[in-house]
Design a protein around this nucleic acid. Structure first.
Lengths: 123, 123
DNA sequence: GCTACCTCTGACGTCAACGTCAGGTTTCTA
DNA sequence: TAGAAACCTGACGTTGACGTCAGAGGTAGC
């Protein structure tokens, strides 16, 4: 498929896909005229990249771990980094759960208070 | 306390604290010579700010919700935004949990494969 | 009162993941 | 075989949360 279709199917922009290629995260065949052609599995690859980005992992780290994700094999150093990222993700989840509780407390309190008290000025 | 102590007690930089003030997220009294003086509860406030930042909430949104967190009262519009942020945090958590599973799969597979197979080149 | 450290304002620098624009080529559709 | 739509390669712009540096003034221990 061409880049526009991949963009549509993954929900990321064309520019982002070119950027991934620049970062060597996503390869593409080229047609005779130089247009990018992607295989079907590129969709999954792009979604994986997005997921890792969302976890706060940098291009460089993703680049490092991608072949391992694909082949299922990793050298000890890479494995150590993977474990590092794993624990960072765990920590992020824990912190977000705390934040969620805070938000819930505020929402619950504010909802109740507003039915009886003075509102907090918006803006 | 002065800004250096607050920085040390919260683990954020002096520059960040000044930035929070710029964004009107954190107020400070001033000494006669113009130095910032913070009350003890500033520690909690800074940690809250960090938590909200970590949830991907912008300065503007934090500014909007802070008085509500403090007073426990919110106008309906603000409340709606709070709920919006809440669901965004929930979504983030879900996505991170997916990512965690992916990482676990990779780590498990790679650990096993490495004991028997070919390593993935590091770097 | 000396000295070492802390703090001030202002202003430019940084970094990552793209957005956007320009100017030209390719591909699809009628 | 038009012409619209998609694609190409640069290359500069953007945004947020700070980092960093300069030059000047404040503070605390001895």
């Amino acid at each position: 498929m061409r880049i526009g279709e991949l963009a549509e199917r993954t929900g990321v922009s064309v520019r982002a896909l070119r950027y991934y290629e620049e970062q060597r995260l996503l390869a593409a065949e080229r047609s005779g005229s130089g247009q990018r052609r992607y295989a079907d599995n590129a969709v999954g690859r792009v979604k994986l990249i997005q997921q890792l980005y969302a976890a706060g992992i940098s291009s460089a780290s993703i680049l490092e771990m991608l072949p391992c994700v694909v082949t299922g094999v990793a050298a000890p150093e890479v494995l150590a980094k993977l474990r590092g990222h794993r624990s960072s993700v765990v920590k992020q989840i824990e912190e977000l759960q705390e934040t969620l509780q805070q938000l819930d407390t505020v929402i619950a309190g504010a909802t109740k208070a507003y039915t009886t008290g003075v509102p907090c000025p918006p803006g």
